[in-house]
């Protein structure tokens, strides 16, 4: 019928644009209103359970590096102890922790040593979670000037559910 009426005329049919424009603007309004700029989020992978073998049965290089995080004033990081070494205290604790882990990672890179670097955290119950993440960041690796991340450890584990360190 539509074709028939057009036959013999030179007029082109006109599309009604108004409803389409209406709906398009409604869509646009919806997307603008629901749009939110959020910061990028990332993950640190933690594998549990802590260990299947007793520490005494492990080779020296396979033994995890035990990092103790002590809570201080206002639940902030009060001290960091790596294995049985003297505790790091003061403002540069995290840098010293990172340097220590870097040293061990370099030692681990020896082709003769077929082992993985595992860090096991023993954390004070009350320590603020942001402080823990600061320490986890320090041992995980570092950001290179190129923007790439240099990974230092193969695995991170948590020991003791809420230890009370003195």
């Amino acid at each position: 019928m539509f074709n028939k009426s057009l036959k013999g005329t030179t007029q082109t049919p006109e599309l009604e644009m108004t409803p389409m424009i209406d709906i398009v603007f409604q869509l646009l309004a919806f997307f603008i209103m629901t749009f939110r700029i959020t910061a990028l989020e990332g993950d640190f992978n933690i594998l549990m359970p802590v260990q299947s073998e007793a520490p005494s049965e492990l080779e020296d290089l396979d033994r995890p590096v035990v990092v103790k995080l002590r809570s201080g004033i206002n639940r902030q990081l009060g001290g960091i102890q790596v294995d049985d070494q003297p505790e790091f205290v003061g403002g540069d604790m995290l840098q010293r922790l990172a340097a220590e882990i870097q040293q061990r990672a370099d030692r681990q890179q020896d082709p003769a040593a077929d082992s993985k670097l595992i860090v096991e955290f023993v954390i004070d119950y009350d320590l603020r979670y942001s402080e823990t993440i600061g320490a986890v960041t320090a041992v995980t690796g570092r950001k290179l000037p190129s923007g790439q991340i240099q990974q230092l450890v193969d695995s991170i584990k948590f020991r003791d559910q809420g230890a009370r360190l003195d």
Partner: peptide
Amino acid sequence: AHEDTPTGKVQELMA
């Protein structure tokens, strides 16, 4: 976890 959470509570949840 919220940044102010005691780490022990995170570990309890993991447990």
